[in-house]
Amino acid sequence: MSDPKAARFPWGLTVASLFALGLLVSLGGWQVQRLQWKQDLIARAEAAAGLPPVSLEALAQMPDPEFRTAVLACDFQNQPYVELQSIQDGQPGVRLISSCDGWLVDLGFVPEAVSARPAQQPAAIPAITAQARRVEAPGAFAPPPEGNRFYARDSGAMSRTLGVEGPVRPYVLFATGSAWPQWQALTPSAPPAAFSNNHLGYALTWFGLALALVGFYIALLRRKLTS
């Protein structure tokens, strides 16, 4: 005679619960890995903030120059740039992208309402500083550029448009000083280094859901086998 309890054992529920438990634990573990990565990123940014600026030649020799500040001596007022559609503080506009000794340089944000661009200047301006930041390649569905106007930070296409020779670097130099001091519409800025770090909370949430699932399964199993 077969065991009636074995016949009532919820195999389907067990398999589904094990699958869900594995998924929740995996998501929790992934957030723990993200936490470690984010803490390392924040530590690197804070350490780099206290270091003096270096030359572009020294920057190019670093295996990972992200967050380091470099001195740029290029005459941005008398060389071409492209415009990247952007939003800053809720305001639409563009970021002007130029180049300096083989590096792409983000010169800053200009509001969309400002249509005028400064005329070229006969004299070079003083050197400015810029911070190296890693940028990701745009996705396959990113809109293509329209002439001088870009809608995604496509470093390869921008380099070709600007005539930058050599391999495309995975970093962009974000100016922290103005290439046009007399042009108030241009706001140079680097991406904020104050990274949000909520990964521990996310990990605890996923692991908490996993424990709740285990408790729910045990309670349901007991009820099933004792009914």
Rank of each mutant, 00 (worst) to 15 (best):
L13I: 05
L107F: 01
T161W: 03
G108H: 12
F195Y: 13
S227G: 14
A210T: 05
Q77E: 04
P122S: 00
L186A: 13
A193I: 14
I128L: 08
D101I: 13
F216R: 14
L24K: 01
V172D: 03
S178V: 05
V25D: 00
M1F: 11
P4N: 05
L200V: 12
P111M: 11
L221W: 08
P65L: 14
P4L: 01
R169G: 10
T226G: 01
W11C: 11
K5F: 06
G147Y: 00
I128N: 01
R160E: 08
Q79I: 08
Q182C: 00
Q131S: 06
P188L: 14
D154L: 07
E136D: 05
E165Q: 14
R169P: 02
L23H: 02
L200A: 15
L200H: 05
P126R: 06
V164N: 03
A48C: 01
M158W: 05
G163M: 03
I87W: 01
R169T: 13
R134H: 10
G93F: 06
I97Y: 06
K224E: 11
A7W: 08
S2Y: 12
D101G: 09
R8N: 15
Q184T: 12
F19A: 15
W30T: 10
L21M: 10
A193S: 15
R169A: 08
P126M: 08
S189N: 10
P80H: 14
A127K: 11
P80L: 13
R222Y: 10
A203F: 12
R133M: 09
S86E: 11
Q36T: 00
A152E: 11
L200C: 12
C100P: 01
S115G: 15
L18M: 12
L59F: 04
A142M: 04
R95A: 06
P126A: 07
E146H: 13
A203K: 03
R134G: 04
T69G: 08
P10C: 14
G201A: 15
R223T: 05
P191Y: 15
Q79F: 12
E66K: 08
R169Q: 15
C100L: 06
P143Q: 10
A157H: 05
G201K: 13
W183N: 06
P111H: 09
A132Q: 04
Q88C: 02
S17Q: 09
Q121G: 00
W30A: 08
D64A: 15
D64N: 14
L13P: 02
F67C: 09
P63C: 07
Q61M: 07
D40I: 04
Q61G: 03
T226F: 07
F150P: 10
A123S: 14
R222I: 09
T176K: 02
Y151V: 04
T161K: 02
P80A: 15
E112C: 12
Y217W: 13
A203V: 04
F109Q: 09
A116R: 15
W206K: 03
P111V: 09
G147E: 01
T205H: 02
A60F: 02
Q31V: 07
A20W: 06
Y217H: 14
V135C: 00
